[in-house]
Amino acid sequence: MKPTHFEILPLQSDEDLVQVRQKLRARMVELGFTLVEQTKMVTAASELGRNALLYGGGGTARLESVEDSNRLGLRMTIEDQGAGIADIEQAMTDGYTSGSGLGLGLGGSKRLVKDFELWSEPGLGTRVTIALWK
């Protein structure tokens, strides 16, 4: 799997998150993903971006086109240098929240985009990578 094109977007405010969603949507349209695929991926990015803003004090979103032997894909990595997640299993459980949300962010995103990878270290931050393949 090799990245063919990438860009790093700031994620420090609500407006930045809107930008990230729009850029992601535009790339997906270019690559010919279906409307349902676009909506799922953008919604997942929105959940993860909000987490980074609320719990990670902001961060970055890296958007890249990827390619392996016979398929094209789009990958987004959302990263923050916040407090991190102490108990990942608990954080992935529907309904669990450390803030005031519904607790659907992480679990829901994983359901929307099957290719989902979470890395987090208390005190260092959190990094979530989601990808969708053609």
């Binding site: 909506t39 799922k40 919604t43 529907d94 829901g108 359901r111 929307l112």
Partner: peptide, 14 residues
């Protein structure tokens, strides 16, 4: 609510 949005809401678990 658009079809794609409805499907996503359901998959999200809302």
């Amino acid at each position: 609510i658009r079809p794609a949005v409805a499907i996503t809401i359901v998959e999200l678990g809302l």
